[in-house]
Design a protein around this nucleic acid. Sequence first.
DNA 1: GTTGCAACATACTCAGTAGTATGCAAACTC
DNA 2: GAGTTTGCATACTACTGAGTATGTTGCAAC
Lengths: 222, 222
Amino acid sequence: MAKNEMHREWALKTRGQEESGYLVESVVEILDCAALCFTEMGFQGTSIDDVARRLGATKGRIYHYFRSKTDLFFEVHREGMRRLMDAVSEAMSPDGSGREKLMRMLEAHALTMMQNIAYEAVVVQGVHMHRLGATTPEQRASLDELMSIRQKFELLFVDAFRQGQADGSIRPDTDVSLAVKGMLGAVNWMTIWYRPRSGESLEQQRAMARRMAELQIGGIAG
Amino acid sequence: MAKNEMHREWALKTRGQEESGYLVESVVEILDCAALCFTEMGFQGTSIDDVARRLGATKGRIYHYFRSKTDLFFEVHREGMRRLMDAVSEAMSPDGSGREKLMRMLEAHALTMMQNIAYEAVVVQGVHMHRLGATTPEQRASLDELMSIRQKFELLFVDAFRQGQADGSIRPDTDVSLAVKGMLGAVNWMTIWYRPRSGESLEQQRAMARRMAELQIGGIAG
DNA sequence: GTTGCAACATACTCAGTAGTATGCAAACTC
DNA sequence: GAGTTTGCATACTACTGAGTATGTTGCAAC
């Protein structure tokens, strides 16, 4: 197996085809540490040696699985997007009005952010990097792929919004794109200020995610 | 005058005491270019030579006015915060209900972001950097100062929010901190997706800022 | 039991970059 | 108009950090 395909292989496995359990572990550890480093120090601020040190290993281990630092960043980003997509897709069951559906999606989004802060902070950073110089053609290709996924993600919310406008549960006079960007912004911003408090229960997290979603849907007027 | 005080001197001047018009110009140019570079490539991704190249000059010019790259970044950040503070403070006139006041503040915030994208994107980055390793003690001190200003800034919104709860214009049952963080997140996120379209009129900008504020205050329910 | 390969570690290269030391023309001072 | 300072440019240093080349060890297959 070509080393640059090793992680992609792993990604496919975790989607439910096979199990290996050893190679996988090592790659997941690298991704976890990388996510933490990128979150705390940014892409440019993180050196491969930083990630290796956090792993208790050396560069060799990382370059054995990933072709470049950019590649590593992209894989973290991809994994973060996958978790987001999975959570939001699951919340998209067609029960209730468009507004209720949108609310469930927002809540799922927020909760996923809270439970995967490191990965999702990298996702947010990646959006930042969009304009940035991803110099090599392959990097540009990877980035374009990720941005295309991100675009689809945003479209899910736009669609739910429109559905809500159609069924009358959402005000029809609103700029859909602006509204969605605002809502997603509020949730994405959580990567900045939210950090799980030790001993925080799942119920507390759910409650916060729900309140955040409610605020975006219902506003604050008394 | 010590070179490290030169820009601070300039900052004081612009607050309305004196005019110089020559030295000032050069420093402002540097800050403008630095803001653009930091916005496009991030703090770590920007080299002093990048900024100099954009200026059509060399490092010498930059290091003549700023002691370090970090210093330069902080001054851009400081200027961005100043513009934000000025705009929001002006919108804080005590007319109307707390909700109306909060709405005006949000609108002013959004409009300032749109009209100073480069500087405000740096401000947002700076918030990111908070956890990051600002290694030297003086850098840490500068960063702490900026974060303290940022804290005050957020408090302005919290106060208006509470005032609105007191006068009944805002729902009393809401977690103030969460609500404010959500609203500010929605507006801050504009640094990611908003770029002025050529030929965009001031009125169009105002309209967008107002709609963004309305969405955060009134929600989307139909 | 040895051949082969996976999974790393070690040791190195080399380009980029923050910061400094110095040069130098023009402006300002007296 | 001689000296001093300002406002930069040029030339250099010292170091970091991405990527590579080359071990080394253990397991697996035959």
